[in-house]
Amino acid sequence: MTYAVEFQNLSRTFDKVRAVDNVDLQIGEGEFFSMLGPSGSGKTTCLRLIAGFEQPSAGSVRIFGQEAAGLPPYRRDVNTVFQDYALFPHMSVADNVAYGLMVAGVGKRERQERAQAMLELVKLGDYGQRRPAALSGGQRQRVALARALIKKPRVLLLDEPLGALDLKLREQMQIELKSLQRQLGITFIYVTHDQGEALSMSDRVAVFNLGRIEQVATPRELYTRPATAFVADFVGTSNVFDHAAAQTLCGQDRPFSIRPERIRIGQDGPREGEIGLSGELIDIQYLGAVSRFEVRAGNGKVLAVVSPNLDDHDVAFTVGAPVKLYWPQRAMHPLAPEENGHVAHA
């Protein structure tokens, strides 16, 4: 089977830094695929390797089965939506959108018609004659999208495209991007450091750390069955118990992670199938729908607990008081014994 994008033993080093370190990855046609990771984890470099702005130091990048290493960006059938949009400031919005057709030698009439159709697709039909500088952040974002899509790429690369937008707009754009991707049926490769964004839109997510992929999985799998401590901690919040903590605090002999919302904070005692530990409540954050508790356990480890604010449940607690935490055993997620997969490779 041919993949939209396939990495084989792909590496990119800058001086001595391995920005991308021997990565294997297959991205299927029509997938909404996210590359998630903290800054400097190699996700953007991977995107640039697909776009052609970077060339691999070793390994191969295939786009629809064709080797792309060595091909300049203008010979690749992929288009990019840039982080800060990279709109041409000296051109009108319509000329920006039509740019890809203009350099391809498409006639003026057809260019204008297709640019207008594209602008209507992103709901900016009346903005063609404006300059990018006269648009809001969200509108520029849509222009960048229209400009990349007009070339009918088989793969669209998006480099943190919503990073500069405020929260409401970001949530709205997430929904629009997802429905656009379904409508067009092309492969979206989406780079983000925002795990919420990655979870809400993607078919699959690759979690990057230190130039390597920690896990590739569906959002649900990633959240419920994180493969490594890093994934458990980076995707959502997790209380990660390493080998020692698991043993001394709750008598478990394997490292595990537990999500804050699976922990019950109370005084009553364990229920059927629950284990628990006791600690001191050191902070309460009221967040509206939920409250977030920070509890320091016996050995100094700080645990996060999130519980819904039903019947002003949070008022019963005072900072500094001793509390007990309980969670069902099945909510514990075992982690691979090696704490950090990279130690062995460094």
């Binding site: 776009a51 052609g52 702005f53 300049p72 960006p73 203008y74 992929v78 288009n79 990019t80 840039f82 800060d84 990279a86 709109l87 041409f88 400031p89 000296h90 740019y99 890809g100 203009m102 350099v103 391809a104 400009r147 990349a148 070339k151």
Partner: peptide, 26 residues
């Protein structure tokens, strides 16, 4: 900005085209 040149290349502009349509006008 350097990313304008990358954007031009990404949209299919050869280096000469990018020079003529983006770098030189700016």
């Amino acid at each position: 900005p350097g990313n304008l040149i990358q954007a031009a290349a990404d949209l299919g502009a050869t280096p000469f085209m990018a020079f003529r349509t983006v770098i030189l006008p700016l």
